[in-house]
Amino acid sequence: MTEVPLAGGHITREVVRVGETVRRTSHGTSFAVRVLTYLETVGYEHAPRFLGVDDHGRDVFTFIPGRTTDHPSQRAAGAYAAGGTMLRGLHDATAAHELAGGRECVIHGDPGPFNTIFQAGLPVAFIDWDSCRPGDRLDDLGYLAWTWCIQSQGRVPVAAQARHLRELRDGYGEVEGDVLVRAILRRQTEIAETERANLQDPKHTADRRSHAKWAVEWATADRQLVERNKEQFLAALE
């Protein structure tokens, strides 16, 4: 069958569509496979299904039609609340499970809009589960809230960003505004520091270092936006 290359995420890797499946080079995804298999058994609908390994040693997943997004203009009313609800479902489904390894739950680890499939402007599934791991809810939620709602580029009014943040938080539920804002700032700082180290690591390829440079600038600019407008975000979350 014909292989169609797929683009997505922020780090290039081999990902192709074959019929109604997605096939990609395995990156030691045994934990992700266990998580996806478990999520299928409990009826969690917002993730691809793992279908096995093909003749080339690539992991095979169900293909989920739709697109990723990088601007609010590409998202429909209700998208932010739906995204929050999707993430809450993952956390609740894995809370206290053995996969959580004694932590609060399993987190996706990289649930940005670039790893979310949208249909008609609404999110339907998280993809790219390589970063899933045992963790704390707020780490995942802080990253989701940042990458979906905070945008120093794209000329999105801060008032709109604050409104989207409120919608996302309400979709997830039960998180105080100051707690969420601190989680956002913490994740922005962590990404900036991690990617700064990657930028300086000579073992990485030029493409990886280029991504690291972009990521440092992205996280730093978005963190500065939150810091400048912190009171407006907090007011929206009251």
Rank of each mutant, 00 (worst) to 15 (best):
T29H: 12
I150W: 01
E45A: 15
N198C: 02
F114H: 04
S30K: 15
H10T: 02
H10G: 04
V33L: 14
P134V: 06
M1W: 08
T194M: 01
H211E: 02
G9E: 00
R67F: 06
A235L: 13
V22K: 04
P123L: 09
V124E: 09
R163S: 15
Q119C: 12
G43Q: 13
W214K: 00
G43L: 14
A236C: 13
G177V: 08
N229F: 10
A219Q: 00
A162V: 14
R155V: 13
G8V: 07
T94C: 13
A145R: 01
Y80I: 03
R103W: 09
L234C: 14
V22T: 08
R186S: 12
P157T: 07
D170N: 15
A7V: 02
P111F: 05
A47I: 06
I191F: 02
R58A: 03
V35W: 04
I107H: 02
W148K: 02
R137C: 06
G43Y: 10
G109K: 05
D110W: 01
Q151W: 01
E231L: 11
S131M: 08
A79D: 03
G109W: 05
H56V: 05
H27K: 09
A125C: 06
L90F: 08
L168S: 10
T94S: 10
E98I: 07
V179F: 08
F233L: 13
V158T: 12
T12Q: 07
A183L: 03
Q119L: 11
P48E: 07
R228S: 12
E227P: 02
G84P: 01
T116R: 06
E193G: 00
I117S: 05
L138D: 10
R49G: 11
K203D: 15
E227L: 10
A159E: 15
H108Q: 12
H46Y: 13
D136T: 10
R196I: 00
L141Y: 07
P202K: 11
H71M: 06
D136F: 07
I127K: 01
G89K: 07
F31R: 09
G28P: 01
D130Q: 04
G9Q: 02
A235M: 11
A183F: 03
R223T: 03
G142R: 04
G8Y: 04
K203W: 09
V216D: 01
R169D: 03
V158F: 14
I150D: 01
I150T: 05
P5N: 11
W148R: 02
E3A: 06
P72K: 08
Y143I: 00
G52E: 15
L180I: 15
I107R: 00
D110T: 00
W129A: 08
T29A: 14
V35A: 04
P48W: 02
R169I: 06
V16R: 07
E104T: 00
K203M: 14
V42W: 14
E217A: 01
H10N: 05
P65I: 08
T29S: 12
A95D: 03
L122Q: 14
T147S: 08
L180P: 08
